[in-house]
Design a protein around this nucleic acid. Structure first.
Length: 517
DNA sequence: ATAGGGTTAG
């Protein structure tokens, strides 16, 4: 089929490797079948590019077959083969399998550790990834620039600013700053942990920048409520001769969306296609729908979707659902929810969104109906939790959580907070009571949502001069948003709340998100 | 002839 009849093992290995490098993964696997058909056995040079190809093709069966084959061939203890296997499982989002291979290895090097680390990070297991980074150091393996870039990404993902700073210091010491990947992940880490000024400082100090660097900064500014500056940075990027890519436009449209810049968003969407030849993907449509939906242009959003040529995914419809919720369009919301249910039946978001919408409309019968539907379909919502870092220690809170050692004090602080903001004119909005509920499905009051507990603890434990940095795994509840904004004003504190959607820099009673989230 | 990295909305 491809190689001459007498081709030997070395010729096949070389050909397979070339294909894998060139991104011709199916061809690499086909060559392997051909090779086996001719009675040649894979060796330690054959397997790594094959494992890599099957992982990048998202072909778990192929990877599993290769795994079985290398076990039979006695190649499992070969370092490069085992590393490739760890990485393949990591790329296939199977961190458990990657870990199992890792644990069995008689010898590990920095590549082994880094493969596991990035695999965990990719699966969103950032805490585990950080533990791997520490384990590597404990095992006497020095991190290299790959490991540093990877762990910084996990610092960002788990909002560990202090750890991120210490990794930054280590990177300086080890001379890794000139590596683009390290600079890029530093920019992103600082931006994602709300330390935008530090992100900018790193960015300015970088000797070379690439599309990823600029994109990280654009997204960072947008996430921190500085959408207009994101657009200025984009202008600088283009002026500097750097070409935006698919991801850059996601960030850019996201920035337009968060800043409410409808015209700019439309223009950039067009420019992406006409100036850069990038076909809009579902991600871009989701951003555009978000942008138009926020502005109340739900019809235009639907129109855009109807004219789209790509296959739309659940995120697009969830974005539409978000717009419907804000602009209280129940009819369209139901259609959007139907689409999400079709594409991603296990997702709790449409239920929560619809339930919020109905409860704001005081349609309690529909609220009950949605809740029953969710229950009958066995869909469960991820429990909400918030955390706040004090002296490098994360304090985690759930709804009505009394597990913290200082719980009594924290609850007293919440009471005090509520009293003071009521005096300042805050009125509780009980329509949001359904946003966060205990796992047993019982409705709860608003007073002890996890974000309030975390803010109360922040008031107690964070030095007065420092901002209180609170993180939440889901979107902040609307009532908590209003309450915490007022807390920031009444207590004269800066509160930086990062939720699943964006940053909320709250100061003097205002929020950087512009009250849309 | 072989293995690992950084940016990505909701």
């Amino acid at each position: 089929m491809a190689l001459p009849a007498g081709a030997g093992l070395v010729a096949y290995n070389a050909a397979i490797s070339r294909c894998a490098r060139a991104g011709l993964y199916p061809r690499a696997l086909a060559l392997f079948r051909e090779m086996r058909g001719r009675g040649l056995r894979a060796d330690e040079y054959t397997l790594p590019p094959l494992l890599n190809s099957s992982a990048l093709l998202r072909a778990p069966p192929a990877a599993a077959t290769l795994h079985a084959l290398l076990l039979r061939a006695g190649l499992a203890s070969h370092l490069h083969v085992a590393n490739a296997l760890v990485d393949a499982y990591a790329k296939l989002s199977r961190p458990g399998a990657a870990r199992a291979v890792f644990d069995e290895m008689p010898r590990r090097d920095v590549v082994t550790w880094t493969s596991l680390l990035t695999g965990l990070a990719r699966a969103g297991a950032h805490d585990a990834a950080v533990r791997v980074y520490r384990g590597m150091a404990a095992a006497g393996v020095d991190p290299d620039e790959f490991a540093v870039a990877g762990v910084l990404s996990s610092c960002a993902g788990s909002t560990m600013l202090e750890l991120g700073r210490s990794v930054h210091a280590a990177a300086v010491r080890l001379g890794f700053l000139p590596f683009l990947s390290v600079g890029n992940s530093l920019v992103s880490m600082y931006a994602k942990t709300g330390a935008l000024r530090d992100a900018r400082t790193v960015f300015d100090a970088m000797r070379a920048r690439c599309t990823i660097t600029w994109t990280a900064l654009i997204v960072g500014y947008a996430q921190n409520g500085r959408g207009r500056q994101s657009l200025e940075i984009y202008t600088d990027m283009v002026r500097s001769g750097c070409r935006p890519d698919y991801v850059t436009f996601i960030g850019l449209l996201f920035a337009c969306s968060h800043a409410g810049l409808v015209d700019a968003g439309r223009a950039h969407f067009r420019s992406m296609v006409t100036d850069y030849g990038i076909a809009p993907g579902p991600d871009h449509y989701a951003c555009m729908v978000d942008l138009l939906g926020r502005a109340g242009r739900l019809e235009e959003a639907m129109d855009l979707l109807n004219r789209s040529s790509t296959e739309l995914d659940a995120t697009v419809w969830k974005a539409l659902l978000g717009g419907c919720r804000v602009h209280r369009n129940a009819e369209l919301a139901e259609r959007a929810a139907e689409m999400v249910w079709r594409l991603d039946p296990a997702d709790a978001v449409p239920y929560v969104m619809l339930s919020n919408l109905y409860s704001r409309e005081r349609r309690w019968g529909d609220v009950a109906r949605i809740r029953a539907l969710m229950k009958s379909r066995g869909v469960t919502k991820e429990p909400g939790c918030s955390w706040v870092g004090v002296n490098g220690v994360m304090h985690l809170f759930h709804v009505e959580d009394r597990g913290h050692p200082r719980a009594a004090e924290i609850y007293r602080k919440v009471e005090e907070m509520m009293e003071r903001i009521r005096a300042g004119g805050y009125v509780p909005d009980t329509d949001w009571a359904l946003q966060d509920e205990a796992p047993d499905g019982r409705e709860r009051g608003l007073a002890y949502h996890s974000e309030r507990l975390a803010v109360a603890f922040g008031l107690l434990a964070v030095p007065a001069a420092a901002p209180i940095r609170v993180f939440k795994n889901l979107r902040v509840c609307g009532d908590c948003h209003a309450a915490i904004k007022m807390v920031a004003k009444v207590y004269g504190r800066e509160i930086i709340l990062r939720d699943a959607n964006c940053f909320h820099h709250m100061k003097d009673g205002a929020c950087s998100c512009g009250d849309y989230w």
